[in-house]
Design a protein around this nucleic acid. Structure first.
Lengths: 225, 225
DNA sequence: GCAGTCCGTAACCGGTTTATAACCGGCCGG
DNA sequence: CCGGCCGGTTATAAACCGGTTACGGACTGC
């Protein structure tokens, strides 16, 4: 998740970037309006945070320009708590508005809320690791550049569980919980079956699995190299 | 444009209702949480404004319940300026947050911004994707350059839900929520039926659907272009 | 109040998916 | 060498899923 932050105050810029970075977002910094617009074009961020009061192009200008070509979430910052700014920012199509000073926690809560809202509109993308891509939309898996392979509900959940820990072994018990939501402990047979069926779908030679390998102590792992 | 306002303070309720009413919005008032939920079901408002601090069901409770079945814009109000409330409200899926006291002008600006944003998602006027055009005015759909086809209320909502995610699969559960506003889980039959009827209207050969396709695991998608 | 539409409910069908059981072979400790 | 355990495989039965047909109640416009 990439966020573009633009502010002419280097201290605040660093603070915001640090807070977001700590939370796991990828941050692109810009120190003025035209740099922000340039970065916006070059980086295609998932969200934009703009200080209003910047030399040259103001946050209003940048927001307006961005709105002309994208519906990406935009949050505005201002030192002045003036209602005038608020109204104008929202009128320009900004999605949220934060008055300095603000706590990092407030910032993160708002960013999170805005991104969730934006995500609702778009819908999540496929999950990928190495040469394996799992597409939740039509529940298919693609190995390398091959044809997408349709998966059943259980097969999909198994792939999902393994892909999330790609390269590592996942214990059978954990897989049972992740795929079936925990059942009687005797249900190792279910997993055996499911693995067997899945191998027949995704392995070139199901007899000697390359992708979905058996791990030494009762578990399986997905090898994506 | 219908707005549901819930607050246990009758003075504030009247004030907000008056401000909104003056601006041309249709206002539905509720004086506590359960009344709000009831009105929400009965009136299907386009936006909801909730006081947090209400006796019985709080604004948090109501917001949470609403989010369970709708993505309608929700704005929260509170007398306390506590950050705690803000974080919780946004986490619950509220879209905006206003601290009392606020000026009518601020309220209106925020309401306007929120509604515009919601409208962006839905998009005003005929909604189109690829060769499918959905006209809300007379609730018809047009495929390519063919004749407009009249849709019933439910058929329209289904098309709307699918068109918003055109090309992507939409899960049956989500469709149930979007079309019927959440019902018992056993109501897969309803969706089956609706899809069947809709296909007979929009597909050249309903037996082999081209537009309204079945997605692998219990879902449907609209294939445009 | 009659015809028509809309929509909720039920039953059935064929195909797929999943659960269960049985069998096979390798490995290992006794 | 034997028996138990483990994972893989095969086989079969049960459950489920989506499509379809049918029916009837609710509502609507004439």
């Amino acid at each position: 998740m990439k966020i573009l932050v633009a502010d002419d105050d280097p201290d605040l810029l660093d603070l915001v970037a640090y807070a977001l970075g700590q939370t796991g977002y990828l941050v692109v910094k810009a120190s003025d309006g035209s740099a922000a617009l340039q970065s916006f074009e070059a980086e295609a961020p998932d969200m934009v945070i703009l200080d209003i009061n910047m030399p040259g192009l103001t946050g209003f200008d940048v927001c307006s320009a961005i709105r002309g070509r994208s519906t990406v979430p935009v949050m505005m910052l201002t030192a002045r708590g003036e209602e005038q700014d608020l109204v104008r920012a929202l009128d320009l199509g900004a999605d949220d508005y934060l008055t300095k000073p603000f706590s990092p926690r407030t910032l993160l809560a708002r960013v999170k809320a805005l991104l969730r809202r934006a995500r609702l509109e778009r819908s999540a993308g496929p999950m990928t690791a190495g040469r394996v891509t799992l597409d939740a939309d039509d529940s298919t898996v693609r190995i390398g550049s091959g044809q997408p392979i349709a998966l059943t509900k259980l097969e999909f959940r198994l792939m999902q569980a393994l892909l999330a820990q790609a390269g590592r072994a996942v214990h059978s018990d954990r897989l049972l919980i992740l795929v079936w939501g925990h059942r009687g402990s005797g249900d190792r047979q279910l997993l055996k079956q499911l693995v067997h069926r899945l191998r027949h779908k995704i392995e070139a030679d199901p007899g000697t699995p390359v992708l979905l390998q058996t791990a030494t102590v009762s578990g399986y792992k997905l090898v994506v190299e």
